[in-house]
Design a protein around this nucleic acid. Structure first.
Lengths: 312, 312
DNA sequence: CGAGGTCATAGGCACAACTTATCGCGTGCC
DNA sequence: GGCACGCGATAAGTTGTGCCTATGACCTCG
């Protein structure tokens, strides 16, 4: 089985209560409109409902967030701070919503795109949010696959635009660089490699059993190419098509993992994983590219999206 | 009144439904445990409740996320993608929860910290999340104020550790650099400055009415210092103690604003605001610092937090 | 072939949250 | 100075959502 039965590194900080996104949205809207009533109207609920919802939020958090007056409502000092945190959460939620929308309209979107997993997970939602704020009319359809399959989809015209992370760039398609990424070697915090003084060499990495993405994925391709001089990576301990269980396995101490910087940023920040420096002769950088057919002109929305991606 | 009555740049994409954070948490837990039942147990709900919740999530999103079998549940391909987006949202939500916790225990925390608004809003929650995962026992109390007041709080020993963004570093306190920041000039997308070919000069900026943070804030101090050679910024159009309405005012076209890069990153990405390049002689960089008393040894948790901040 | 795991279904209950209607109260206009 | 308007709070009633326990159907493995 692929799933780790004894997984579950989180001990027992469970009693934490998650906030209600609708309440957070209300807070943000009150901050913008300056009134509970106007906020209620904009959110399409009645004024008492907004009043009640805000009360509930304040009671749950144990903080007074808005200062009510007969002329309207203003945020308190703590309200200002919480409001900004709330905006971060809503931003992420909006990215999720945008991505889900695109996944749902995989067929009927006006703009069909295909993206590799890493790109779809970490970069695309943000781009889609921007695209929507700039031109709300476009309906995007998203298909997620590994880099090889993305290329095929673009060739077959199943997708107007593709995003790949593989080092192999097909000659029969137009490409544009949209971002840069780097693979990093990560281990559990207690791993012997974390106490190394010298950077990890290609030979060492190539001879160590790892947990890896599946063959055909851009991540695996890049690693394979980087370790070619040392006869590729040896047989992996575990091989999976998604990063979440890989991260869990690595964090659990199963074996080192090689993953995109984008995929492990959170875990590194939270010290669930530790990055192991490598020698410079290991070419673990990679370029994320957009690809499209040479013979067809890019549609307007496709051009728009491409412009957005190239600015970040 | 300070709030903008006609504010509300969002037109009418309201019908978007926000996901339920508990459902998202269930999704990532299923991904980790590989079973609805185990996920239910970990979240402290019954197995049927988890089953139902997951069904509801799938119906709401219009996507099949998990593949149920008699041996357990695994994520579908789209489930893997959505799972990763969900983790982002939860990460932000956890940061919010951590921050709220700290605000609530402003008095009874074992580690008392005080931070300026920009730091508290954008950097601190992430640090607190890390701190909690590393040493779950510590209770942090957070007080938010402007840089001047933070310094006072540390002097009075109301706070063990302070975080400031002001260019003036008090001589009677120990300091450590924790991050770097930069002020940026931003305008609404249609503003004449967005069509400039030449970078904005200090003289121009100094003679233009702006929307600004209040005096005493680190942001205002930095700007004042940078524009000293041109006799400081002229009388502001609007002066506020928080960034949200400032951003709204700037995005609405009221006047250019000068704000922390951290505060406007989202708006820049979404093209709600545009950054105006400035000449190099404008010293808009600034250093974010931790401060504490020279005469008292830092407590263990305080040292821990400081170590965390210095790695990012 | 039985035991133990999985998830789904059914029935019943509780509470959370929304609605409409109304009130109290400041502000500002005339 | 008085009156109307807009704000938020309160009240009462209803709906619906989500949870629990109990049970059933199914697959897998020993």
């Amino acid at each position: 089985m692929t799933s780790n039965p004894s997984a579950g590194p989180r001990p027992a900080d469970r009693p934490r209560r998650l906030p209600d996104l609708n309440a957070l949205e209300l807070l943000v809207t009150v901050a913008e409109t300056g009134s509970l009533g106007r906020a209620a109207a904009r959110l399409g609920i009645s004024q008492p409902a907004a009043s009640e919802r805000m009360n509930l939020l304040e009671r749950r958090l144990g903080l007074q967030l808005v200062h009510r007056s007969t002329t309207g409502s203003r945020l308190t000092d703590t309200g200002v701070v919480v409001n900004d945190w709330a905006r971060q959460v809503l931003e992420a939620a909006q990215a999720l919503a945008e991505g889900v929308d695109a996944l749902v309209s995989r067929q009927d979107g006006r703009l069909q795109i295909a993206a590799s997993l890493t790109l779809a997970e970490h970069l695309l939602p943000g781009w889609l949010v921007t695209l929507r704020t700039l031109s709300p009319g476009v309906h995007v359809g998203l298909q997620v696959a590994n880099s090889q399959q993305v290329i095929e989809a673009v060739r077959r015209q199943d997708a107007d635009l593709g995003f790949i992370e593989s080092p192999a760039t097909p000659r029969d398609l137009r490409t544009a660089v949209v971002a840069h990424d780097r693979l990093v070697v990560v281990t559990a915090p207690g791993h012997p490699w974390t106490r190394r003084k010298q950077p990890l060499t290609g030979a060492e990495l190539a001879s160590t059993p790892l947990v890896l993405r599946e063959a055909g994925s851009g991540t695996r391709d890049t690693l394979q190419r980087a370790l070619r001089a040392w006869n590729g990576p040896c047989e992996p301990v575990l091989e999976l098509g998604s990063t979440t269980p890989l991260r869990a396995a690595a964090a659990g101490g199963a074996a080192p993992a090689v993953l995109s910087q984008l995929a492990v940023a959170d875990d590194l920040a939270a010290r669930r994983l530790v990055e192991i420096p490598t020698t410079d002769d290991l070419a673990l950088q990679r370029t994320l590219r957009a690809v499209w057919r040479k013979d067809t002109e890019l549609t307007d929305p496709a051009q728009h999206l491409l412009r957005i991606t190239r600015r970040s």
